[in-house]
Computed example of a mutant assay.
Amino acid sequence: MFGYITPLKSELKVKEFEYFRSYYHGLCYSIKNNFGNIPRLTLNYDMTFIGFILEGLSNESIIIENKRCIKHPTYDIQVIKDTNALKYAANLSITFFDYKLKDNINDDDNNKSKVFNIFLGPYSKKAALNHYNINSIIKLNLANLSNMEKEKNFNSLDQICHPFSNIMASILKDYPHNLFEDSNTLRDKLYNLGYCIGKYIYLMDAFDDLEEDILSNQFNPLIVTHKLDRENYKDIINEIINEMDFLILSCISHCKEILDSITLLKHREILNNIITLGMTNEFYQICNKMYKKIPPNN
């Protein structure tokens, strides 16, 4: 479900991209330093974004170090030294990956997920204890989401998006450290931003996996809301693309509006790039893939 929130590299200055990459590497090292090497496989760009925006609202100093790692053994890479926001994102990376493994096991008895779940188990328990309140919110909402998906007891995309949207909203709002100009107003804005981010991720995942889910007879909210099957899918792709265009771009527009209303100490240019360009680019890449499926007479 993750991997849709990245910067558009071509529109960043070289130093900006290198800085963002150093933060991504910093999250990798934070996972290693706080949990170990195996959990580094949980690294993803969406949790990098969560840490990055919280870092932008923090007075905590940023220190960049030169390091080498197994993936880059012959040259130094720039790495952001561990911060509260990075530690938070590291915990979340492991927590989400753990739930994803359990979901794979429940859905199709995936043996690979079973094996990795055994190795990740001790680390996920530690991550859960580090942020018990957030973990409880994640657990409750994912359970609600799983029930809705299994029973197909929802009437709209907004309804099925809510549990995951609420997770991402709570993650930002309930960040357990002080922020610049911290207030209930700021925390409410972070909730709204996280909610839009969560809705974007859930819809993007459904849109991206639609054809594969139809062919493999897996759950997809778009299959339910549009009553799709193998026979009618290609006939209404254009209708689905238009609907996703409205929903996804609305999420992005709301994210930008909220971001503009927040006083950031750092990262604004890169965050603007991620939200207005990177997220939009990810969406249109999926659209281009979908357009190729439209029959010529449509």
Rank of each mutant, 00 (worst) to 15 (best):
R40V: 11
K139F: 11
I31D: 07
C69R: 05
K87Q: 13
K114P: 10
D82G: 04
Q78C: 03
E151N: 08
K67P: 01
A89V: 07
N37M: 06
N111D: 06
N66L: 09
A85G: 00
K67N: 05
I31W: 02
F49K: 10
H72L: 01
F119M: 11
Y123A: 01
S156V: 05
I63L: 11
C28Q: 02
I50Q: 05
D46M: 12
N141I: 06
G51S: 05
Q78E: 14
D98K: 06
K114Y: 08
E151P: 00
K150S: 15
K87E: 12
N33C: 00
I64T: 02
N66Q: 08
N44E: 11
E60M: 01
I137C: 08
Y99S: 06
K67G: 00
S156E: 11
H131F: 13
N66W: 00
L140Y: 09
L54I: 08
N104R: 00
D108Y: 10
H72I: 05
I50V: 15
N44T: 04
I53A: 05
L43P: 06
L101V: 01
I64R: 00
I64E: 02
D107W: 12
Y75L: 03
A89C: 05
I77V: 13
M148S: 01
S61Q: 07
F52Q: 10
L43F: 13
P73R: 11
C69H: 05
K32F: 15
N117K: 11
L129D: 12
D103A: 05
I70W: 07
K87Y: 10
A128Q: 11
G36A: 08
F96Y: 07
N144R: 11
C28G: 08
I134V: 12
E149M: 04
R68W: 00
N155D: 06
Y132P: 00
I105T: 01
K114G: 13
F96G: 06
Y45M: 09
F97K: 14
G51M: 11
P122M: 08
N91R: 00
N84G: 10
A90R: 07
F119K: 13
Y132R: 13
I64M: 04
I77G: 08
N133F: 15
S30N: 08
N34A: 05
Y45Q: 04
S156N: 10
N111Q: 14
E149W: 04
